[in-house]
Nucleic acid binder design. Structure first.
Lengths: 235, 235
DNA sequence: GACAAATTTAAACACCCGTTTTAAACTCGT
DNA sequence: ACGAGTTTAAAACGGGTGTTTAAATTTGTC
């Protein structure tokens, strides 16, 4: 039988040091390759640690991964800056534009320690793991709900409205597109190298493109169509 | 030495039948799981054929895959209907709306024989293979260029204009989003089950959302009216 | 310092993958 | 009908994965 995790902090030896190093190496590898393509051998190599130790300290690969997610949520790192955007006293349109800029920039640049949280989220989006529920509830949904509230504010609609939800997905979809499909985009549009200036151009476009519709909506002619889904069920 | 492919159609025995069955099974498995997660064992099982035959008839897995791609391009199947949209005499806005409806529908419904081509493209987008260049050039780019030309027409801009390209990506990004991230979307928005009615609602939203920007762009002769019509909305 | 528990190590395990081998079974021209 | 050439079949190969084992080492405590 494999020894499971020490029940508590009974023996705080150099134990914690390898655990920490393992956790940090795992964060990088999982953020680089995603859960499925990450190997425990690469994690252990990067941590300069024996292969068997991930199973000794964490049980199995999946528990190590969830532990990485737990610490990523605990230390929001660069993602904290995104949430701060919404607390500023800017106009909603300005907040939206800044949000798109920051999100696109963080999604595209990839490599950077402070980006671990975002990169883990992107991998979970593209290829969900058994921990997808945790990632959505604790990392993605908070951001999503902030954006949804902001869009509802701009359009003068409740955040639960179908239209608000659809617009939220439209903006998320446009932004993630550049992060997830860059090889194909690069072949369709070779001039787009995603330099800093081009990142700003793209972000500004997404903001302009989206605001054209958002600012059109608050009028009374808000909805005449669609929205015939399950509206009655709620409260 | 391994026997390579028969040099030509020298011996057209029952050979062709297993080749065909292998090719068809491979199409389904590659369309289901994508190249990386597809296994030759599952392909051979589904084709009721011995494991070694894929290497005998096609050399290796990658050549089988490229052969699948070749036949997918040759028999455009349901994708032909998409191209036909652009040749109709509809107004550009109508074509765009129909295009979004058809693309979203074909992307979301997945399982269906006539959808092989689209599903192969989606997998290649999410996780490119060594054949990505071929897929882009022969399948994705033609569609992309059609859409780009259409958007240029609506906006009164050349297809090569940055703005036209950005709008093309915005529409593609919004649409693919629902195909690639459905597990996460389902958890963020549980009421969205992507029924036929909801697919139509989403497609109409993407069209409305995008046309709001498309119709207020340059057209230098109507620059003055653009400001006003922005308040008025579309008729 | 000694002893038991916790930790680390090196090796192997069991499974899956794409691919190859070897030989038997077919096909077809003559 | 024959036999060379083609096609099938079953098994194994070589490499990679996560995981486990059993011995060696380190650690904390008496």
């Amino acid at each position: 039988m494999a020894a499971s995790q020490p029940s508590s902090t009974r023996h705080t030896a150099a134990n914690d040091e390898t655990r920490t190093r393992l956790l940090q190496a795992a964060s990088e590898v999982f953020a680089d390759r995603g859960y499925h393509y990450a190997t425990v051998r690469e994690i252990c190599n990067r941590a300069n640690v024996n292969l068997a130790l991930v199973n000794y300290h964490f049980g199995d690969k999946l528990e190590l991964y969830t532990e990485v997610l737990r610490s990523a949520v605990k230390h929001p790192g660069g993602l904290h800056e995104v949430h701060d955007l919404f607390t500023h006293a800017d106009e909603p349109e300005t907040i939206l534009r800044k949000f798109i800029h920051v999100m696109l920039h963080r999604m595209v640049k990839r490599r950077e320690g402070s980006n671990l949280h975002m990169r883990l989220m992107l991998h979970e989006l593209a290829r969900p793991t058994p921990a997808v529920a945790r990632v959505v509830d604790e990392s993605i949904k908070p951001l999503h709900d902030r954006l949804r509230g902001l869009l509802g504010e701009i359009m003068g609609l409740p955040p639960e409205h179908d239209k608000t939800r659809l617009c939220t997905q439209s903006i998320i979809g446009q932004t993630i597109h550049y992060a997830h499909h860059s090889p194909v985009i690069a072949r369709l549009w070779p001039e787009l190298k995603m330099t800093s200036e081009q990142q700003d151009m793209v972000a500004d476009h997404i903001a302009d493109f989206s605001l054209a519709y958002l600012k059109l909506t608050p009028k009374k002619h808000s909805l005449r169509k669609a929205v015939k889904s399950k509206q009655r069920g709620k409260r």
